[in-house]
């Protein structure tokens, strides 16, 4: 799959734990410190190895690491913006998750994002079923949904639920969609200069 996902993990490790730690992980994987190229393709097994190696080096459970990665993804500004196009509030955003995979494909026709399916239950409770090419997308989504709730200014309780029927599941309790003001999001960015 695209190096995009590996590259995101690389950026997460470098920014949160420093270049030295990333070098150790890269070395263990037989990579140079420059690591991954987002737009080149790599074997899926390398992603698994990368996650396991990072979890081992950081001495962190895999799920906890992936939740942190999910939260980190929501702080990457271009990605945060793309996610915010999902809806004008957190409630709409949750419903846009069904389309997340499709939106990804609209960007890159062979991008392997997980398939998400949102089920709305009573009392503001939602269950998101995650079907992804790599085990752990559920944890990534839990972290990402929590960070996006902050971004929208919504008050939520999020936890990874027990997998069922081979699907990872995330449970979201939406207590208040407009709890805080959230971060600013303008539909259009100021015009940017054309890179030389």
């Amino acid at each position: 799959m695209y190096g995009l996902i590996n590259k995101a993990l690389q950026a997460f490790l470098t920014e949160n734990y420093g270049a030295a730690l990333w070098s150790r992980v890269a070395h263990a994987l037989g990579l140079g410190p420059e690591g991954f190229e987002a737009m080149l393709r790599y074997d899926d097994r390398l992603t698994e190895e990368l996650i396991d190696t990072a979890a081992c080096v950081l001495d962190k459970p895999r799920a906890a690491l992936l939740e942190d990665v999910g939260a980190f993804l929501a702080t990457i500004e271009p990605l945060r913006r793309l996610l915010r196009f999902g809806g004008s509030d957190y409630w709409e955003f949750l419903f846009s998750l069904d389309e997340l995979q499709g939106r990804g494909l609209m960007t890159l026709p062979d991008l392997e994002l997980p398939e998400l399916s949102l089920r709305s239950e009573s009392g503001g409770r939602f269950v998101i079923e995650v079907r992804g090419p790599i085990a752990g997308w559920g944890a990534v989504m839990a972290g990402l949904l929590r960070a996006m709730a902050d971004d929208y200014g919504a008050l939520v309780l999020i936890e990874a639920a027990a997998p069922s029927g081979g699907l990872e599941r995330v449970q979201v309790m939406l207590l208040e969609a407009a709890y805080a003001s959230g971060r600013r999001f303008d539909l259009a960015l100021p015009p940017t200069r054309v890179p030389a």
């Binding site: 271009p78 196009f85 609209m106 539909l187």
Partner: peptide, 24 residues
């Protein structure tokens, strides 16, 4: 409109990555 704006930014992000990759 929202999809168009979304695509515009997604395309720009991909193009930036490709441009940087080509440079490297």
């Amino acid at each position: 409109a929202i999809e168009l704006l979304y695509l515009r930014e997604a395309k720009a992000a991909v193009m930036d990555e490709l441009r940087a990759l080509n440079g490297r």
